[in-house]
Design a protein around this nucleic acid. Structure first.
Lengths: 148, 148
DNA sequence: TATTGTTATACTCTATAACTATA
DNA sequence: TATAGTTATAGAGTATAACAATA
């Protein structure tokens, strides 16, 4: 039996039922939507994730945050510089070779709006899943995240 | 009750249980693994997806393939040029303003190895999901893909 | 010696606008 | 007029290697 969605313009999609491909497309759609919702805040998705981690873990080092988010040190540097230049985060001294990050006052204000955006987005993600499958959503994603 | 995985190096991860974030991380892991498996074939993930679509739909146009894969025309051009320069695909004439793609002989040979790599990867993705949740995997991903 | 932060660099993917040629 | 393909360009994310300073 042929799924009618398999054809677009007479072209058959051999990838749509492959879980890895569907995972990539689902993630891409979700990232695009979330990115658009963050645009008014002047933030990218990664910047938003850094701000959220910093808010919850004031004083955490650049390296520790990067490891948590799977962003390499070398790539964290310009990201943090961007957040600093926007006046959203400040450095705190840990020791002579590393520093921690904390939200600045304006970073704290922005974080409130950011938290609302995240909550709205995450709700829409969860609600996009048929109710009977919602309980499986996080277990599946965590399993894929940790295991593939 | 605190999930022991919430802490790494004393830093708490406020994002890990957000479905959208977990979706992004799961996709990223999967893409990295699959990309590494494709490297010996000299292909990127997107190139592999184009080859697979072309194999199943010989003669499909650049634009139609791009729409299916959600790759814009302007970005399809250099991708197709890359595949052409590797001698993997050939152009067929559709009309004066568009052309179709088909696998070249060497593209066909590579596609066999590619199909095996895809099958192995997709199996590992499915098997990474706990058995009781496997039936929900595709319905969830399709719902997120089409709906968020 | 291992780790931190930095710099430099390169590659892939993505997004937009503008252009031509054709349907 | 709308579509196909192209070109140019810019931005975002990612990856590696190397370096100085510090633990």
């Amino acid at each position: 039996m042929i799924n009618s969605n398999c054809y677009r313009e007479g072209v058959y999609d051999p990838l749509q039922d492959l879980p890895g491909y569907a995972l990539r497309r689902a993630s891409a759609v979700q990232m695009a939507v979330f990115g658009a919702q963050l645009a008014p805040l002047g933030l990218t998705v990664i910047e938003a994730s850094i701000l959220t981690v910093v808010k919850v873990n004031p004083g955490a080092s650049l390296s520790a945050i990067g490891r948590m988010l799977d962003v390499q040190r070398a790539n964290m540097t310009p990201l943090v510089a961007r957040l600093e230049s926007k006046g959203l985060v400040e450095r705190t001294i840990i020791n002579g070779r590393s520093f921690g990050l904390r939200l600045s006052p304006s970073g704290g204000e922005l974080q409130s709006r950011l938290a609302a955006a995240i909550e709205a987005h995450e709700r829409s993600v969860a609600e996009a899943v048929p109710p009977e499958h919602r309980a499986a959503l996080l277990p599946i994603l965590h399993a894929l995240w940790r295991a593939v």
